[in-house]
Design a protein around this nucleic acid. Structure first.
Lengths: 388, 388
DNA sequence: CGAGTTCGTATGGTCGATGAACAAATGCTA
DNA sequence: TAGCATTTGTTCATCGACCATACGAACTCG
């Protein structure tokens, strides 16, 4: 079933859009000649050419030199032009801003990290300054920007222009803010808005396309990725893995419940349990093999594994990716989590991986979400993209 | 985005299929004239006619009498012909077989309940006898059958012709069986196979299109329905709500874990806790207001609510539907569950409903899944359907 | 009974994908 | 080095699906 059963009719124009998006999605994975694209997608060579030639003419795609070696006329690989359009992913964090500029193939063109204490700032200032920084960054890159997105460390209702930030435990002044309005338009479109963990999940599509992403910090967030797409939930609040209950009468949590995992396995609990002051301190202690640190890590891993067992029983995915503050502890923690999950759910194998991105995951995943949106509506690439 | 980003190209033929499926999906909800269909779907009246006329000619759709009352020429409503094709949904249960024959609009044409002790039977006999019963049922209905599906009380890997039944706690001899092969083809296609709770969820699409379905019995199963579709998971094992953990060191469960909800809230635990022998006995005691029964129900409701809190934090859906053995206890239980969920997760409202179907839910939902498959490939309706 | 309105159908036009044919570019072979 | 096979990229005629328009049909209202 290649067509979704949405309530909208499908005209021929959307057919073209779909096939063009299909080709671009293929090109994102690897540069290929028209003939190879035709073979892998099932379209005709003629169709591939008629779909992609306008993008080549517009400078979005570039043609490489003929490939050498094979028999027959060599194909000319197509790829995203190194001067072509880019997208921007921004992550607003408690103590700073992370942004990255990426080509449509996901290649990062530019990174930016700026320390900034957002704790006491009003929402308008937070997103206004972020927008100014991003615009300056875009100007410096000198390539057309076709979209941008913002990740925030709080649950977000919706992803569109009226996306609303709900309770923000660590940045209370942001509660109720509408980042898309405060940020302003980029490339004449509202910016995409989403939760830091939900969007961060997408940064890991390279290692799997069906997985549960867990992002630890002061709390624990996450994203459910199935078939390469994030499960949005009814109001965009899916993936709140930190509030999965592991002990019905356990420690009370800021969410109103009791026994939520994040009271056992998020960074504050882990540090307190290990008697460490900072994550770096804990990491050193773990590397040194200090028993107290190892025991605390074991308890956190078991707690997290218990919660993930519940999650996997519900969504049944074969991979778990640990990210955020877990990244530096990852090697050892992943094993602990995997052991707990397989102990509790022996019926299905699970692989527990550690994020290869660490802190920039949210910005990278946001960029990925934006390119997904752009590739789903490739017409944007033809209407003379302009810098903001 | 009306087109999914599947890896398949889209030809014009699939465009037609999609729009035809869209129209039939609309007709399934309510009979409508061509003009109304055009208005609601966004297609042209001409397109609607050219899509549906072949089905009218084939006897799949029928034209009603002109509607009276409005101004202008009255439209002639189209609906699924009362002699048109049907689908069959079968539920293999521990102690019997439930089957229903439904029209493509979901209207049940015929029901069958047969008591049969499947406990000691080999898989080949179980599904062979079910197939014979179903074929006899089909012959008696006298309408062309265009598809069939089988629900089983066990986790199932996959839904296609090679769907494999995993561990079946209550019917151990079925473990490893491939029902589609044993059942044989219906309408020249393999039967659809799925878990009883996963498919049963679909029977409730009338009351919501985004919800968590919970089906209680000896264990607790479930289905996550988002956007009118069941979340399948990587191997078809999603929705095992019974094994969500509510007490990390709680009662041990047959799945290998400890503290799974179904050890607290499934029928056996509930009956033992209440000191009742059967579900009917418990129901009487609850209605009579016996304190022991009410207390036990309260404990089960709290346990279930705790597990559902975890589930909702992960998938974020606005509705929970309680079914299976919960149906007769529903009115009171639903309130208990809702209270526990809102107590633990006050940030989002949730509605807890009771299934209106009870035991036949699995068969009904299976029929629904089959019609979904048929409407997604409406060409099946034109190739002279034949009875098996 | 005529005007106004809406429904269903017929027709020409547009757009996208296909399939076949053809020119271009390379490796292989004599 | 020339000729052949093979593969690539492009061109062109055709088909299929939908749309816009126009027109007859059927009904209500004044």
């Amino acid at each position: 079933m290649a067509l979704s059963s949405a309530t909208a009719p499908v005209r021929s124009a959307e057919l073209r859009r779909h096939n063009l998006g299909l080709l671009l999605g293929q090109l994102r994975r690897a540069p290929s000649s028209r003939a190879v694209l035709a073979a892998t997608t099932g379209l005709t060579r003629a169709t591939v050419a008629s779909l992609l030639d306008p993008l080549v003419a517009a400078g979005v795609l570039a043609q490489g030199p003929p490939s050498r070696g094979g028999i027959g006329r060599p194909g000319r690989p197509l790829w995203f032009a190194p001067t072509g359009p880019v997208v921007v992913g921004v992550s607003v964090e408690v103590d700073g801003l992370v942004a990255c500029v990426a080509g449509l193939d996901g290649g990062v063109v530019h990174r930016m990290q700026r320390h900034r204490d957002h704790a006491g700032m009003e929402a308008a200032e937070v997103f206004g300054r972020a927008a100014r920084d991003v615009r300056a960054l875009c100007a410096r890159v000198g390539r057309p920007v076709v979209g941008a997105g913002v990740a925030v460390p709080a649950p977000v209702r919706g992803t569109g222009p009226d996306a609303e930030l709900l309770r923000a435990p660590n940045l209370p002044l942001l509660a109720g803010a509408r980042p898309a309005e405060l940020f302003g338009r980029v490339a004449d479109r509202p910016v995409l808005v989403g939760n830091e963990a939900t969007l961060g999940a997408l940064a890991h599509l390279g290692v799997a396309s069906d997985f549960v992403y867990v992002s630890a910090g002061i709390g624990i967030g996450g994203g459910i990725v199935a078939g390469g797409r994030v499960l949005p939930g009814a109001a965009g609040l899916a993936g709140e893995i930190g509030h999965v209950v592991i002990e019905r009468d356990g420690r009370s949590c800021g969410c109103g419940g009791t026994g939520c995992v994040e009271q056992y396995a998020a960074l504050p609990a882990l540090l307190a349990d290990a008697g460490a002051g900072t994550a770096a301190e804990l990491r050193v202690a773990v590397r040194a093999g200090e028993p107290a640190a190892l025991a605390a890590l074991g308890r956190a891993g078991a707690a997290l594994g218990t919660a993930l067992t519940s999650v996997l029983h519900v969504v049944d995915l074969p991979v778990v990716v640990l990210g955020g503050s877990y990244t530096p502890l990852g090697d050892r923690l992943a094993g602990l989590v995997r052991d707990e999950i397989t102990r509790r759910r022996p019926s299905a194998a699970v692989e527990v991986l550690v994020s290869g991105h660490g802190r920039p995951a949210a910005a990278l995943g946001t960029a990925r979400a934006v390119t997904d949106r752009v590739l789903a509506e490739p017409d944007l690439l033809l209407t003379a993209p302009h810098t903001p």
